[in-house]
Design a protein around this nucleic acid. Structure first.
Lengths: 205, 205
DNA sequence: ACGCATTTATTACCTGGTCCCAATTCAGTA
DNA sequence: TACTGAATTGGGACCAGGTAATAAATGCGT
């Protein structure tokens, strides 16, 4: 039996539903029911089956993620997903090159995205409230292309200058191949609450 | 007149209220009324006077901010607005530091945005279909803060290696003050692609 | 004692849901 | 064709966390 185009079978509708919610977490059931042309109850049953929380919960989760980051470590302000982190020692992050990261003509990632991943990792691995990049020496060893997964590994090499500076080396790989290498000097606030601030005495907010 | 510690005068209570909400935006009026030992209506009047939105709105705003932040770097083709460009010679770009570019705790811009502006400019100034960053040596001279406008000036210093490499220096200013300095080696297609390898010498500090 | 600000209480209403139960529709099969 | 089970829809009760508006109570200074 040929289905009307309007109404999709359950499976496909649920897939659509997930997609819609993923790329607009702010959407409410009412709107979804209009878009998928089913009743609001169906939408709710679908969410239930798919384990998708209600809109408010979704926003709350997003807010929490970005908030926790502020409180502890800027984990959310990081480009790439931190998949391992040993503070003051090392860390690993993963970043997948997608459409929006590449030059559309060539499919090659723009350098600053690869840098951003490495920089974020270098900052994240430093166990401090305030950690800022002071300088960096970087090499793009080979270009990274659409779809490739960049695994960045960061190592804290030294903690010098009365704990106010740290050197972090980051190596980014696609598979076995090294694609990026960077040596970062990170300023830290040196200690728990105060003492030396990173760069020249930044103002507090 | 010595006030009871329990009940503060309006002004102080409202100050407290702001503080409480700032460092826990998730808190609801009910809880606030318990903490400040006033009725829930008073809390609501206070919020009204202070222009503090309800909890749900707060969470929504946070979610929006973090959502925008994730999109902001990836979506832009070029970071910063190119306001002057002489191909193969020099270029100027402007980039304003907004909420989504800073560490929310400190209001200091994340390094990779400043880098991204400079990198984008360095690539843009190279008059070629394919231009990729091969390496860079960068210094963050002072931290850049929320609201500041970064003016990046890029100069093509040399075109060497049979037109396959170019050195571009970028200086970024806030007002008169230099905040960032970078030396970029950019690979260009120089006739045909084959833009694969980058590094040859590994000098690190 | 009066008056004004402040505080509290009350009620109606809103959004965006949950939970539960019943009715309906649809498609395939005995 | 009638039956069955899944899918869909509808409705009601309830919830949190509010807004809005109006009224009543409480301070407190003069």
């Amino acid at each position: 039996m040929v289905r009307a185009i309007e109404r999709l079978p359950k499976r496909q509708r649920q897939q659509q539903l997930s997609r819609l919610i993923v790329d607009n977490p702010f959407i409410a059931d009412r709107e979804l029911s209009r878009m998928l042309k089913v009743s609001i109850q169906t939408i709710r049953l679908d969410r239930l089956e798919l384990g998708i929380p209600e809109q408010r919960e979704r926003l709350k989760l997003m807010a929490e993620r970005s908030y926790d980051a502020v409180r502890s470590l800027p984990l959310d302000e990081v480009i790439g997903d931190i998949i391992d982190l040993q503070l003051d020692r090392s860390g690993i992050s993963m970043f997948e090159i997608r459409e929006e990261h590449v030059f559309s003509r060539t499919g090659i990632a723009r350098g600053h995205h690869v840098f951003a991943q490495a920089n974020s990792l270098a900052v994240a691995v430093i166990n401090d409230e305030i950690a800022l990049t002071a300088s960096a020496d970087i090499r793009f060893i080979r270009s990274v292309k659409l779809g490739e997964k960049c695994i960045a590994k960061g190592y804290v090499r030294s903690i010098s200058g009365g704990r106010s500076k740290a050197k972090v080396e980051v190596f980014t790989y696609v598979g076995e191949e090294m694609v990026f290498q960077g040596s970062f000097i990170i300023y830290r606030s040196a200690g728990e609450a105060s003492v030396e601030r990173g760069i020249e005495d930044a103002d507090r907010d």
